[in-house]
């Protein structure tokens, strides 16, 4: 199952912080402003084109050169769940 970010949510860098900002038409169901940490911002960039959880874990592993697959899987799973709950991302239609 692939996930994709909602159109109208933009990742910006403001004073060295990664911030998601939602356009007006999304404001009823998406928070206006949310901060992301560095790995969160990396994941967001992958989600902009649509990606499944397994592939996202692999890219994270490559990017951060980490061996502990388990921790990454848990972190990515938790981030995806949080983004889904807040309507930032949705399941990609085939």
């Amino acid at each position: 199952m692939k996930y994709i970010s909602r159109k109208g949510v933009i990742l910006c860098e403001i004073a060295d912080q990664n911030v998601l900002i939602a356009a007006k038409h999304l404001r009823k169901d998406v928070p206006y402003v949310t901060s992301l940490n560095e790995t969160g911002a990396f994941c967001w960039k992958q989600l902009e084109e649509g990606i499944d959880e397994k592939e996202l874990c692999q890219r994270m592993k490559q990017e951060y050169d980490v061996d502990q697959q388990d921790n990454i899987s848990e972190d990515v799973h938790s981030l995806i769940q949080q983004l889904l709950e807040r309507n930032y991302i949705q399941v990609m239609e085939k």
Binding site: I14, A15, I21, A23, K24, H25
Partner: peptide, 25 residues
């Protein structure tokens, strides 16, 4: 980090699209 969210809520504008969001940010 602490100031970012409260500050954003003071801007009296509702950005409509990516261009507006980039300008505001």
């Amino acid at each position: 980090k602490e100031a970012l969210a409260p500050l954003f809520h003071q801007f009296a504008v509702e950005p409509q699209n990516e261009e507006d969001i980039r300008q505001l940010s």
